[in-house]
Amino acid sequence: MKCRYPQVLLLCCALYTAVAGVAQDDMMDFFDEVDEQARPVTAVFKSQRLINVHTCETPGKGEMNFVIAHRFGRISDGAYALWGLDNASMRMAFEYGLSDRVMLSVGRSTFEKTFEGGVKVRALEQMEGGRPFGLTFYSVTMANGLRWADPERENYFSSRLSFAHQAILTRKFDDKLSVLLVPSLIHRNLVDVPGRAHDVATLGGGFRYKISNRTTVNAEYHYLLPRPIQDEWHNSLSLGIDIETGGHVFQLHVTNSRGMFERSFLTETPDRWQDGELYFGFNLNRVFQVGDRR
């Protein structure tokens, strides 16, 4: 065959070569086209609680987190009381992941023999390349379990109850720094002096900073918004570290709030840092997988 169109053939050859060459370079652009699936930001905090206050973290579906927490006596009690270690106040709790975003919890503190039942819902999650913050709600009912001070008079069960509702705003800035902002509303059915506020609001903030993959330093502060509560209640400030060892998270801290449930540490902290009225304590978290994850 005599080709009448040599220039066209030449063009073909050039195209073959060019396309083959382009194909080589073309390949990796496939990965640029991959739309990254939007993923929630995970591991914002190491534990369900930063120190006292709840974080956005909930146990995974079917996970049971068992918490044993202690607050010892005042460090200022000195060597005689082994800087408070002789005198421990205890709280234990079970926190169960109903789904990856809903937690149910029950707790019991030795302080005022208090029972708690709480629900935490991770309503909005911070997203990779998307929503810049997470929003979690926590509500808890607390019941004072002490015997009635005056059993002779008519006592109501509702007098034992108090409630706390929190909106927990969280943001993980990078691998190391996560911050939370927590407005809280606490309602007490019974106040000890008539005329004092049944409803108290606080505004809290805190952060964690990772100093290694398994260790973080934490701080939280809760400011009591001005309301007519007793003068002797103060703002709560706590500093601590988290140490994670596989299935456990150990949280060690120093705080001026000895109570470990919301009404107590948010609105009824009698001690102050500037007076050296501090408590050493820990939370120990142990996770068990009890239900199916799927």
Binding site: Q37, T42, G60, E63, E244, R293
Partner: peptide
């Protein structure tokens, strides 16, 4: 992050640690 485990905690440790 697309790897999923039987336990949520494993997943967290896998990614974090």
């Amino acid at each position: 992050l697309s790897f999923h485990f039987e336990k949520a905690l494993m997943e967290e440790h896998f990614n974090e640690n």
